[in-house]
Amino acid sequence: MFLLRVYMAFDPRQLEILRPQLVRFAALQLRNDALAEDAVSETIIAVLEHPDRFQQQSSFKTYVIGILKHKLLDQLRRGKREVQLGNDEDDDRSDAEMFDALFTSSGHAMEAAPSWGNPDETLERKEFFDILQLCIDKLPPKTGRIFMMREWLELDTDAICKELDITAANAWVLLHRARTRLKECLQISWFGARA
Results as ranks from 00 to 15, higher is better:
residue 172 W to Q: 05
residue 7 Y to S: 09
residue 109 A to N: 09
residue 161 C to D: 04
residue 38 D to K: 03
residue 7 Y to N: 05
residue 38 D to Y: 06
residue 163 E to L: 13
residue 134 L to Q: 15
residue 107 G to I: 05
residue 59 S to P: 01
residue 138 K to G: 03
residue 97 E to D: 11
residue 187 Q to H: 07
residue 112 A to M: 08
residue 130 D to S: 10
residue 76 L to M: 10
residue 79 G to V: 13
residue 178 A to G: 00
residue 155 L to C: 07
residue 154 E to G: 03
residue 144 G to M: 06
residue 44 I to T: 14
residue 130 D to C: 02
residue 26 A to C: 02
residue 58 S to W: 07
residue 68 L to T: 08
residue 111 E to F: 05
residue 52 D to N: 12
residue 35 L to N: 05
residue 29 Q to G: 12
residue 23 V to W: 01
residue 149 M to I: 09
residue 115 S to I: 11
residue 179 R to I: 10
residue 160 I to V: 10
residue 101 A to V: 02
residue 194 R to N: 12
residue 189 S to D: 15
residue 124 E to F: 11
residue 103 F to N: 05
residue 148 M to H: 05
residue 63 Y to P: 01
residue 192 G to K: 03
residue 8 M to F: 11
residue 105 S to D: 15
residue 174 L to I: 08
residue 41 S to K: 01
residue 107 G to A: 09
residue 104 T to W: 06
residue 193 A to N: 11
residue 84 Q to H: 14
residue 11 D to E: 07
residue 124 E to M: 15
residue 173 V to T: 04
residue 2 F to I: 09
residue 18 L to Y: 03
residue 183 K to Y: 08
residue 132 L to C: 12
residue 12 P to L: 08
residue 91 D to C: 03
residue 30 L to V: 08
residue 99 F to S: 04
residue 186 L to I: 09
residue 54 F to W: 06
residue 115 S to F: 13
residue 40 V to M: 02
residue 19 R to E: 02
residue 193 A to G: 02
residue 140 P to C: 06
residue 85 L to P: 00
residue 88 D to I: 07
residue 129 F to I: 06
residue 92 D to V: 08
residue 171 A to I: 08
residue 118 N to Q: 11
residue 158 D to K: 12
residue 76 L to Y: 00
residue 17 I to T: 06
residue 145 R to P: 00
residue 63 Y to V: 04
residue 194 R to E: 12
residue 155 L to T: 13
residue 142 K to I: 14
residue 157 T to P: 00
residue 66 G to F: 10
residue 162 K to Q: 14
residue 80 K to L: 11
residue 14 Q to K: 10
residue 80 K to V: 15
residue 161 C to H: 01
residue 56 Q to L: 13
residue 133 Q to K: 13
residue 33 D to Y: 03
residue 121 E to W: 03
residue 119 P to Y: 07
residue 137 D to I: 15
residue 14 Q to D: 09
residue 19 R to H: 02
residue 9 A to D: 06
residue 68 L to D: 01
residue 179 R to M: 03
residue 99 F to D: 01
residue 29 Q to E: 10
residue 66 G to P: 04
residue 152 W to S: 10
residue 116 W to F: 11
residue 132 L to Q: 03
residue 133 Q to C: 12
residue 81 R to S: 10
residue 43 T to Y: 02
residue 115 S to N: 14
residue 149 M to Q: 05
residue 161 C to R: 00
residue 13 R to W: 05
residue 135 C to S: 15
residue 139 L to T: 00
residue 73 L to D: 10
residue 136 I to V: 14
residue 76 L to T: 11
residue 1 M to K: 13
residue 20 P to L: 10
residue 145 R to Y: 01
residue 8 M to D: 10
residue 121 E to F: 07
residue 186 L to M: 07
residue 75 Q to C: 10
residue 183 K to Q: 08
residue 158 D to T: 13
residue 23 V to T: 03
residue 111 E to C: 13
residue 14 Q to S: 12
residue 143 T to W: 01
residue 14 Q to C: 04
residue 117 G to E: 07
residue 7 Y to T: 12
residue 164 L to F: 05
residue 64 V to K: 00
residue 50 H to S: 12
residue 186 L to K: 00
residue 87 N to A: 14
residue 39 A to C: 04
residue 138 K to Q: 06
